[in-house]
Amino acid sequence: MAKIKKSARPETAIPTASMSDIAFLLLLFFMVSTVFVSEKGIPVRMPKAKSIEKIPRNHSATIYVNKNGTISIDDFVVSIPDVKYVMQKKLAEDFNVLTCFRTDKDTNYGIMSDILNQLREAQTLRVYFEAKLER
């Protein structure tokens, strides 16, 4: 009876020569895509919505409003009547400024309405209500 000889298995090895290439590639990707967030803001729980669109980042000014009604712009707590002056300054710096609200979902709408009126007076009329995508 003929013996069936098993062929010797080829040794498997992961090639490591190009590992650093991969590492550098990933590194470059993350270095380029990293944006260091300049403002801390205040913690808010945003509402959820479905028909949301992307907000252009380079022109946006973010207003944080938490559920106690604290308003924060650029990490400064501002009162409602001051929103107008802050936003007028922003408009002077960037003509295409758009306001982006990061408001807690349990905030009273009255505060939001007051801020919106301030924005109207400041002539910063493009507004986004930031929301999370509802799945």
Binding site: V35, V37, I52, L125, R126, Y128
Partner: peptide
């Protein structure tokens, strides 16, 4: 570990002038 993809999404609206 430091990258945070800061993609903002929301509902847009244009307010009427005061």
């Amino acid at each position: 570990s430091t990258t945070k993809f800061d993609i903002k999404k929301g509902l847009g609206i244009v307010l009427p002038a005061a």
